[in-house]
Computed example of a mutant assay.
Amino acid sequence: MKFSKLLCGALALVGLMASPVWAKDWTSVRIGSEGAYPPFNFFNASGELVGFDIEIGQALCAKMEADCTFVAQDWDGMIPALLSGKYDVILASMSITEERKQQVAFTEPYYRAALTFAGPADSTITDLSPEALEDLSIGALSASTQAEYLQANFPESDVRLYRSQDEVNLDLVSGRLDLQVSDLLPMLDWVTNSEDGKCCKLVGEPIMDPKYAGEGTGMALRQEDQELRQKLNEALAAIVADGTYQAINAKYFPINIYDMK
């Protein structure tokens, strides 16, 4: 008799745990971003997290009718913090790669990407072969696809990795680097629109190899959160269709980065 009561109680508990009461409705979503990658995500003079990524996130949340909060996180810890539950989505210009897909799920790309070299404005470097860049110092953001590209293709160069893109830029400005490799769009913005970036220029052709440029830039989620992934994909399609995406794009870039080839 006691066993039957215990069994019934256990089954009732299992039924309760499986009920919709325990399902996430995603009316509240926490979004992780870095805050050190202008113009995509950065802190303004008032200490607010702003940029293209943030505005896209706000537009997506409006479409989903979700209350969203943004959480700043250093790049190196971005995926571990997602997996530990610090936030629900990474919206921080993260390239979609096979390696990352082993850990997280991605939405459809919300923009396309390429890599680029950058160097001092007076640099005479034109040959970007591994042989030509032997012994030169080249910087990149740590734990990034740019870092993977350098480590795989320039083993004889002095590859230096940094915790933030701002630190890479600073060492290029100060002459402690000969070159750096970065994502094309933020680097184009930096050399074109910033005071510090006047020191420098893009070097060579864009690097489009999908092994390093990725399949595009997506939002990362825990693999089990497929319902949220679907909601984000639907919201992304909606803001592209109604012109919201293009309006945000135009504030930051002279080209359409959604389907950039």
Rank of each mutant, 00 (worst) to 15 (best):
M1P: 00
K2P: 01
L7F: 12
G9Y: 12
A10T: 10
S19K: 06
V21Y: 15
K24T: 15
R30H: 08
G32K: 02
Y37S: 04
F42G: 02
F43C: 04
S46I: 01
S46K: 14
L49N: 01
G51F: 05
F52V: 00
E55N: 07
Q58A: 11
A59N: 12
A62G: 13
K63T: 09
D67V: 05
F70V: 00
V71G: 04
D74T: 05
G77I: 02
M78E: 01
L82Y: 10
G85N: 09
I90T: 04
L91D: 02
Q103I: 09
A105T: 04
A105N: 08
Y110S: 03
A113P: 02
A114W: 14
T116D: 08
T116L: 08
G119H: 07
S123E: 14
I125H: 12
S129H: 13
E134R: 03
E134L: 00
G139S: 06
G139Y: 04
T145P: 02
T145G: 07
Q146Y: 09
E148Q: 10
Y149L: 13
A152S: 15
D158S: 07
D158V: 06
Y162V: 03
L170W: 06
D171Y: 01
L177N: 04
Q180C: 13
D183F: 04
D183M: 10
L185C: 10
W190I: 05
S194V: 08
D196M: 15
C199Y: 07
K201C: 13
E205G: 02
A220Q: 11
L221W: 05
R222A: 11
Q223H: 10
D225K: 10
Q226D: 10
K231T: 03
A238V: 06
I239W: 10
Y245F: 14
Q246A: 09
P254D: 15
